[in-house]
Structures are given as C-alpha cells and as structure tokens.
Amino acid sequence: MDALVSTLQDNDLVVAFALVGLVTAIAMLISKVLTRGKFQASAIAIIIGLVLAYIGGVATGGEDGLADLSLFSGIGLMGGGMLVNLAIVATGFGASFEEMKKSGLGGIISLVLGVVLSFAIGVVIAVMFGYSDPVDLTTIGAGTATYIVGPVTGAALGASSGIIALSVGAGLVKSVLTMVLTPFVAKYIGLNNPRSAIVFGGLLGTTSGVTAGLAATDKRLVPYGAMTSTFYTGLGLLLAPSVLFFAVRTIFG
C-alpha cells in the first residue's frame, strides 16, 4: 500500500493525466448514454472537475480543490497557470487574425464596459446589503470584476480581511457560474461566432470562467474569448483602485 502511494506521489503529473483521462471517459459515457449526445462531453467533464474540486476543498479545507490532496497534487501543475496559458495560446493556432481585427472595436467596448459594469453591480448589491464605506464598496465591486482584482484593490485601499474574503467570494461565484452556465445559454446569446466570443470574453472577463465556458460550448471559440479576457484583470487592477474608487467615494463618501 505504501509502495502504491509513493508511486502515485512520485509521478503526480502522470497521475493527473490518467485521472483527467478517466474523468473525460466517464463524461463521454454520460454524454452518450444519459443525454444521447445532446450535451457535450467536455461540458460534463468540466462540471465533474468542479465537483471534484468541491470534494477536495471539503476534505482538506484548502483553497486549491482536488490539488490539496497530496495524491492529486499533479492536478495543480496540470491545471496551473503555466500549462493553461500554453494550451490557450496553442488554441490560437488556426484562429483567424482577420476575424479578430474585424471585432476590435466591439472587443474594446466590451472590455471597458465589462469591468465598469461588473464593478457597478457589485457596488449596488453591497449597498443593498447595507454596506456604506467607500473602501468596502470598492473592494466588493472590484471582486465582482474578478477574484484577483478584489483582493489587490482591497489591500491597496486598506480594506478589512472579511471584506477582502467577500470580494474573492463574489469573483469565485462569477467564475464558477460562467464555467457551468455558458454552454447552456450559448444558443440564446448568439455565442457561435468569433465576434460574439470576443465580446463575451470582454464582458465576463474572468479568464478561467471564459475559457472553460467557451471550451464547453465550442472549442473553436476559445482563442477569441481569451483574446479579450486576457486584458480584463489588468484593466480592472488599473481602474478599480483609482478612477472607480474616486467615483464611489464621490457618490457614497
């Protein structure tokens, strides 16, 4: 038994490849048998991944889902930023630069609007729940943009750790919901061409949510959504602690 555990621990990335392969096989079976192919296997596999992350989180109390279990630490490497970015860039191979140029203006508008809108929604909801301090409101609004913008903004403005945790929570809800819901709503919001994918990436912005949601919908859309969402967090970090904070302070200060 010890020998088995140490074999698995010494080969953690290989374990991750095998595990994800198994999850994909199960997802294909579910897709074929239970949904008669109506619902894509990749969407089901991503949902199984989220369920595993939940189980891992409950089991360890950690923040990295399944990767917090030492047996599955390789999942953290496989699903970590480095390989995710490498694979996203690879999906750009065969994508059309012309299509990206055609949608440039819509992409830029959606990016700016996406950051400001998510921020504003976060602020309004926080006001409705009784928060009134401009620093708290800004931090929660920033977290509603993405879970990276929230804590960075909160730290810069000196928000309390409870508020920062709340802002991370809002961003996580947005990211997980985007992953799960995108394949279901894609048909209704016209998400079947490069331009709408570019706009989608700019509006939602959460890179993990956007790229996973598009992957579950149609993999050909991924590079277009990634193109705009890759700018979102940077733009959020730029706007939230400065212009947007001043605006909130002017209105609620």
Binding site: I46, G49, V58, E63, I75, M78, G79, A87, S175
Partner: peptide, 17 residues
C-alpha cells in the same frame, strides 16, 4: 486544452464560491 481546463476546474476554490 480541454483536459487542462478540466484539471483547472478541479483546482478551483468551489467551496469558497
């Protein structure tokens, strides 16, 4: 890409959400 995204999904802080 999709397998890597499945792994990424499995490392999300879902409990936190």
């Amino acid at each position: 890409y999709i397998p890597i995204v499945v792994a990424m999904a499995a490392t999300q802080n879902v409990v936190g959400a």
